[in-house]
Amino acid sequence: MTFINEVITEETKGEFDFSRLTDPISGHPIAPRKRWTIDRDRNAVLIIIGGGTPEIPEFYALIWKGDIIKFSAISKVSSSPETGRIISWDIFDIDIPIPLQSKQEDICQLIREAIDAKGWLYDRDCLRNVIINIQLPTTH
């Protein structure tokens, strides 16, 4: 299976533990979300956890096999009759837990696939192309 966008229902919201997620700005637990981008076969889900104003990037959590990988993202949508609608993503400040440091390439690939599937406003079909630039995390 691949990543797909879904509405989070009462039946599906228990599939992942969101209790450890906090808004990076306020530090408060995140409010319930309505949508996610999920790959059940790989036990991975992408969810926005905050931000998203013109001055503040969007903050995401990728929950993969129970581990939380957080990152920041800025997107820009452009459109023209020649190119169609394109979204460009800059992904940065990737926070990979220490036990997963050796899986950096796999994690970056998961982020790339999840963001591509998320598309624009949880709609990939409205886009002709998704461009994703990932600033690799620094290792500690």
Results as ranks from 00 to 15, higher is better:
residue 49 I to H: 03
residue 114 A to G: 12
residue 28 H to Q: 14
residue 95 D to L: 13
residue 75 S to F: 07
residue 70 K to L: 10
residue 120 W to A: 13
residue 119 G to Q: 06
residue 36 W to I: 12
residue 97 P to Y: 01
residue 82 E to M: 14
residue 109 Q to K: 13
residue 130 V to H: 01
residue 64 W to A: 04
residue 64 W to T: 13
residue 37 T to C: 15
residue 4 I to V: 12
residue 68 I to T: 12
residue 136 L to M: 15
residue 137 P to Y: 09
residue 57 P to W: 05
residue 13 K to Q: 15
residue 105 E to C: 02
residue 24 P to K: 06
residue 74 I to L: 06
residue 6 E to C: 06
residue 8 I to K: 06
residue 133 N to T: 12
residue 81 P to M: 12
residue 26 S to K: 03
residue 4 I to Y: 02
residue 55 E to F: 11
residue 19 S to L: 04
residue 15 E to C: 03
residue 48 I to N: 13
residue 67 D to S: 11
residue 127 L to H: 09
residue 9 T to N: 12
residue 134 I to M: 05
residue 98 I to M: 14
residue 49 I to P: 01
residue 11 E to T: 06
residue 124 R to Y: 12
residue 10 E to G: 00
residue 129 N to A: 09
residue 47 I to N: 05
residue 75 S to R: 10
residue 78 S to W: 03
residue 72 S to A: 13
residue 128 R to N: 14
residue 130 V to T: 15
residue 31 A to N: 02
residue 137 P to V: 10
residue 115 I to C: 08
residue 84 G to W: 05
residue 52 G to Q: 10
residue 70 K to R: 12
residue 114 A to K: 07
residue 117 A to F: 06
residue 65 K to L: 12
residue 103 K to C: 04
residue 29 P to W: 11
residue 22 T to W: 01
residue 102 S to T: 10
